[in-house]
Design a protein around this nucleic acid. Structure first.
Lengths: 380, 380
DNA sequence: CGCCCCTATGACTGCGTAGACATGACTGCG
DNA sequence: CGCAGTCATGTCTACGCAGTCATAGGGGCG
């Protein structure tokens, strides 16, 4: 019963007529069997499948697509990065796509890519996909009103307001603002007067979304909204931001837009002699796999990538196969704050931003303490 | 000069005949223009391109594939994980594939997936790819001699001995053993008597490769080869391993098969009161983006993912387009050890494994010290 | 008992392109 | 001046499948 993979060298690939001949039926009947069409007797179906296996027959997708007008494939536009977020999302999408019987075509966009998302989608359309998933559309030329793309296939945009015109436009992955808000509130609840924000690049919707959630949490409680420091998602940029923030003695809590930046930030703070979490609390975002094991274990917000991918794809496939009304209201992803050891109540003494400007020469005093909870995470 | 993306609703997609009619030439000439065939006058080419733009024409890939027998696409089999290594490799592959004018189809395999790599390749063959890239073939049924797959397209296997039979089988990404050896030697050079190894899952070729490099380094210098501790690439498994290793006072240096495990390991050691790098040195593998910013900054080995992808793909495409001799001997990737602060000479005193069995109750003594080099990395 | 509908199958054809071959126009050269 | 060779273009058709319609047998039911 082993799958007949490949065919012997030399002979050309068998076609459906060959199978038909061997099974003693018409080519069309073979087609019927392989498409699970009704009105095929059990006996004929058996004969056809046997013949097909014997010959090592497999449907020719090109011919199939040409004849039917559908490619049974879905294209994905992702960022060309190995960042945990985009990568996880892609993996989630792949799984769902394959489960639904579609094939996956992938095109990256690089930040700074002149063609950008438009070029990527174009490339997918060239390939004739039946639907498109856009993950984090960062468009270079977003300045003006980039002439919204017009497509003729349904589109699912993850995490951003759609820059496209298409028969169906779905969105998924909203709710990051809520999660950001929860993270910020966690810090306020611990007693911090306010919370600083280490933002991601503002061209990313995900970054803007988190920033808004942070702002909302602060203004809802009438807290001062400190100036935003920005990074580029990398730990290196978090480190740079951390050096700045370390100079401001008034900083007692920081919400970083992702875990990598949070880790860089913590390093900078530590080197500057600000202990985490005793002097400064830090919250990250994403819950990358190492978050629980860095020093100190990082309090962060877990993103439900799989759920987002699955839920969104389900709706996309539905839209592809039923070009009627767009149903299925998206379900909001659950907020999942993971509290570990990088957050704590603020230091008691200091009340007004003590402008104790520290010089770099003192930096070596750092020492990060042991963690109370042994690095295990607790959910919220 | 904006690209004419999409077409107006209602009207069907224009075909090459439509373009031909408008340009006053034959359909075949349109085909010639779009395939960059020779023997088309500049004038005609212009007219055709103008007509095509005017109509918003784009080649129909299905028809093209059917007529030519080639899909101009390459399939990739990856692990369904967001692990830094596989994800980086995928991104690298995508870029190169698109640069060479091919489309990318992706299929994941999950560890534990019954269909496994065989199923994934099958799915790609169904889609009619012109070539296949397999990244880290972990096959469940590798026990016996899994009936090697037979394919009719060239295959590039990254990081493993090929489990397939195909017209052309290329490999890339070897050399991890060398890098592992270098990492191990770095520790020996610092004065450690021997080096322990925290290995990855042995079903992964990458894991076996690194283990071999480590062994080679030790035996080349007649060092004792300690028992191997294994993990599953995750920081969590590294943490578990770290708890074991922490009980053995003789451990002064550990080479972990990837950075995530190294980070978990360091955490466990730290919690157990073993300081890194004063008491125990740790080297990782991969140089993930946060490696420079964890505490302490991680000494690790950088993998040249992009170079491997690019070099391998170049050869694959060559094999696809020239079904003749397989040329282009692969170039070995450069070893790139990044020395940071997680490695140091061994503690002076202890000469023989001082069986000073420490109890967990003392764990809270940990304290990780400041780093000399401010978290910046230095190359080797 | 005859009519109609449902099941099971086949014949024919179109999908849009590229390959094989044909056809003219032109060039260069003996 | 004529013939071979090159360039530029056209004609015809296969690629392998799924849609459409046609056909033929078999009940159910009035």
């Amino acid at each position: 019963m082993t799958r007949g993979t490949g065919r012997g060298a030399g002979s050309a690939a068998p076609r459906s007529v060959d199978v038909a001949r061997l099974a003693g039926v018409s080519q069309k009947t073979v087609s019927r069997v392989f498409n699970d069409e009704p009105y095929v007797s059990a006996d004929v179906r058996r004969r056809v499948l046997d013949a097909a296996e014997q010959l090592g027959y497999r449907l020719n997708n090109a011919a199939r697509a040409l004849a039917s007008g559908r490619t049974r494939s879905i294209g994905v536009v992702t960022l060309g990065t190995a960042l945990y977020g985009p990568a996880s999302l892609l993996m989630g999408v792949e799984r769902v796509v394959r489960d639904t019987g579609y094939a996956l075509r992938v095109v990256n966009t690089m930040e700074g890519d002149p063609a950008g998302v438009a070029g990527a989608m174009d490339s997918l359309l060239d390939q004739g996909v039946d639907g498109i998933v856009i993950s984090e559309p960062i468009d270079e030329q977003t300045d003006g009103g980039a002439p919204a793309l017009r497509l003729d296939v349904p589109v699912l945009v993850i995490g951003a307001p759609p820059p496209v015109k298409a028969p169906t436009v779905l969105t998924a992955g909203h709710g990051a603002d809520l999660m950001a808000r929860t993270a910020t509130e966690h810090l306020l609840d611990l007693g911090h007067m306010t919370v600083h924000h280490l933002a991601g690049p503002q061209r990313w919707y995900a970054a803007r979304d988190r920033l808004e959630g942070w702002q909302a949490a602060l203004t809802a409680q009438d807290r001062e909204v400190p100036a935003v420091v920005s990074g580029d998602w990398s730990a290196a940029s978090g480190y740079r931001a951390g050096r700045e923030l370390a100079e401001d003695g008034g900083v007692t809590a920081v919400f970083a837009a992702n875990d990598d930046m949070a880790i860089g930030l913590i390093r900078a703070l530590t080197e500057a002699g600000r202990r985490v979490p005793e002097d400064v609390s830090v919250v990250g975002f994403d819950d990358i796999p190492v978050a629980a094991y860095v020093t100190p274990p990082l309090t962060t917000v877990r993103q439900p990538f799989d759920a987002v991918a699955q839920e969104g794809l389900k709706r996309l496939v539905h839209a592809i196969e039923n070009p009627k009304a767009e149903p299925l209201t998206p379900s909001g992803p659950p907020v999942d704050l993971v509290v570990r050891a990088s957050t704590a109540p603020p230091p008691p003494s200091r009340k007004t931003p003590a402008r104790g400007r520290r010089t770099g020469s003192r930096a070596a005093r750092a020492s990060s303490p042991p963690l109370a909870n042994g690095g295990l995470s607790t959910r919220h």
